[in-house]
């Protein structure tokens, strides 16, 4: 018989009589050797700051003892001086604001267009057949190679830089969005159809939320691409911005300023991925 016995047929358990719990343990009995455990990341919250402090200490020590040549590495002090100058002269704000403007307009527009086109490709097979070959052909082109073209099209000003970042983030967003749509459980879509949900409801309530994890992890990738393109575009043709600032510092061998610029870029990247992490927590609160 392929199934278990019905409940009535099972013998009654006797809950009142306690089972015999006294067991005889032989003298040679020993615990089974433990071989489990390990292979599981644990949190060590103090380790990262400690490593950072040790590295900073070594850096300071090396610089002050002359072991680290000031031509190869600035002293921590030089970096602090560079930051002080950036703040007192107000150049921090001019460079940072122009860079953030380029980064955010380019990235947000690229992501918005990318999600739109990605959804089209995911939802309509005509759009997929029409657009996917073009997307696949343009995706691997390093977008910085198109900067000269964009300068001709959009001028040497902000347009060409924003366009470079926009193009650079557009393609990965398209791909992560349509892949996210493709990954939505077909069973859920069939469920929606079987309850007579409208097409727009299925897209809005089933497909888009289902594609959201893919879209957001695409954001992480496109954001780091956007920073790379920002710096590259600013190094090629800009007077202001963090990329231009780093390039200038390098040209006059001011390593303190160069490092200050790099630290600012790292901070932008960290803040960006922290914000995306926040968005994931909020939008994907239904996951564990």
């Amino acid at each position: 018989m392929p199934d278990s016995t019905p409940p009535e047929a099972r013998p009654e358990a006797r809950p009142d009589t306690a089972p015999d719990t006294v067991i005889d343990i032989p003298t040679d009995a020993r615990p089974v050797p433990f071989r489990g455990g390990g292979f599981r990341p644990r949190r060590h919250p103090f380790l990262a700051p400690l490593v950072l402090l040790i590295l900073l200490g070594l850096w300071q020590l090396g610089s002050s003892s002359g072991f680290i040549s000031p031509i190869a590495m600035p002293a921590p002090k030089d970096v602090l001086i560079a930051f002080r100058d950036l703040i007192t002269t107000g150049t921090l704000w001019t460079n940072l604001s122009i860079s953030l403007y380029r980064l955010l307009t380019g990235w947000l527009l690229g992501a918005a267009l990318g999600i739109t086109v990605g959804l089209m490709i995911g939802l309509f097979s005509q759009a997929r057949s029409a657009a996917l070959p073009i997307v696949s052909a343009l995706f691997p082109v390093p977008k910085i190679a198109l900067l000269p073209l964009f300068i001709i099209w959009f001028g040497i000003g902000e347009g060409s830089k924003v366009a470079t970042i926009l193009f650079g983030t557009f393609f990965p967003t398209v791909i992560s969005t349509y892949a996210g749509v493709d990954a939505v459980d077909r069973g859920l879509i069939r469920m929606g159809q079987s309850f007579g949900l409208k097409w727009t409801s299925i897209v809005r309530k089933i497909i888009i939320p289902g594609a959201m994890p893919g879209i957001l992890s695409g954001f992480r990738i496109s954001f780091s691409i956007a920073i790379v393109l920002l710096v590259a575009a600013e190094m090629i043709g800009a007077q202001h911005g963090i990329g231009a600032y780093i390039l200038m510092a390098g040209a006059i061998f001011n390593l303190g300023e160069l490092f200050a610029g790099v630290i600012i870029l790292s901070a932008i990247g960290l803040v960006g991925s922290w914000l995306i992490g926040k968005a994931e927590k909020r939008l994907l609160d239904w996951r564990a």
Binding site: G187, L188, G196, S201, K205, I206, L284, W286
Partner: peptide, 21 residues
């Protein structure tokens, strides 16, 4: 067989899904 619940909706959200339209 596999329930087909939307993981991004709570229990009542899953029921309300089929009423909204």
């Amino acid at each position: 067989q596999d329930f087909a619940l939307l993981p991004w909706r709570t229990v009542q959200g899953n029921v309300s899904l089929v009423l909204e339209d």
